[in-house]
């Protein structure tokens, strides 16, 4: 059993007010979406498909919570208080994206994942909380840093995707919606990164664990069950090499996590999986 390595007076991400974050949470975006604008000036089908995928990824908050809450992370009341509000805001981000998609003709389904792979993923999903609750409880508090670092990496990737969509879009209503979404999501990355940074700085075992586990994750979170061509649409086509490098540099800046190249490796894997 590992011990909590932080001294009792150190509160990870102490500069982030979880209470203030909870108090100012942003709920439904529906009133500000101006969906009629899409009927007159629709987004192109590729963009709609990407928005559709991003909506599903944002809806993955509960799957993340499921993995995290069976571990010692659930005992940290400050982290869970953050996650409660984070899940709420992500629900409404996903809802806004779904509304935009619904204002268009149904997107063409991308090439799906194979039946064998789906069965394997389904089985893995059922077994995961069983094995994870045993393994994670043996590891102890050091695992929290991995969870919050994973949250940061995921936010950096998806936010970069939203920024690219915004910068490339000539559609003023869509740009306004993406700006609102980005304003909601920026504090998420800020909390995750600050929390992970403080925990990693305090514990070498937490660093070793995070390096090992983060390298094994399919980025962004939830994309393992998505059609590879769609995932490549984000990682390979939407994000420029400089964007991937920027995300990798942010990961490098977390204590002990230099040299993982998570984003650029994810893009390579996505390209290969999509057969490009």
């Amino acid at each position: 059993m590992t011990r909590q390595n932080l001294s009792p007076e150190v509160v990870p991400a102490a500069g982030f007010s979880v209470r203030e974050f909870a108090r100012t949470a942003h709920g439904s975006h529906r009133a500000s979406l101006d969906l009629d604008a899409y009927r007159e000036h629709p987004l192109d089908p590729d963009t709609v498909a990407i928005v559709d995928l991003l909506a599903r990824l944002e809806h993955g908050a509960l799957s993340y919570l499921r993995s995290v809450l069976v571990t010692p992370t659930h005992k940290d009341a400050r982290v869970t208080a953050f996650l409660v509000t984070w899940a709420y805001e992500k629900y409404w981000v996903a809802d806004a994206l779904e509304q935009v998609v619904a204002a268009h003709p149904a997107p063409q389904p991308g090439r799906g994942i194979s039946r064998t792979k789906r069965l394997r993923l389904g089985l893995a999903e059922r077994i995961e909380p069983i094995t994870e609750s045993v393994v994670a409880n043996l590891i102890g508090d050091d695992l929290i840093a991995t969870h919050t670092a994973a949250g940061a990496v995921d936010e950096w990737i998806t936010q970069a995707a939203f920024e690219q969509l915004r910068d490339r879009s000539p559609h003023p209503e869509f740009v306004a919606t993406l700006d609102r979404i980005l304003a909601v999501k920026r504090p998420h990355a800020a909390f995750f990164a600050a929390d992970a940074g403080d925990r990693l700085a305090a514990s070498p075992p937490a660093v070793r664990l995070a390096r090992r586990r983060l390298s094994r994750i399919t980025w962004p979170l939830g994309s393992a069950t998505e059609p590879p061509a769609l995932v490549a649409g984000i990682l390979d086509r939407l994000l420029p090499a400089s964007g991937l490098a920027l995300i990798d540099a942010r990961v490098d800046a977390l204590p002990g996590l230099a040299g993982l190249h998570l984003a650029s490796t994810a893009a390579q894997k996505a390209r290969k999986a999509a057969g490009r």
């Binding site: 908050a61 919570l65 499921r66 659930h74 629900y91």
Partner: peptide
Amino acid sequence: YLRDLLVTPSHKERDVNAFMTMWNR
């Protein structure tokens, strides 16, 4: 308690997902 609910297959259902998010908050 949310944790105990999420480890079962119900969390993938859309209505359950929406409810759990709001309820927990």
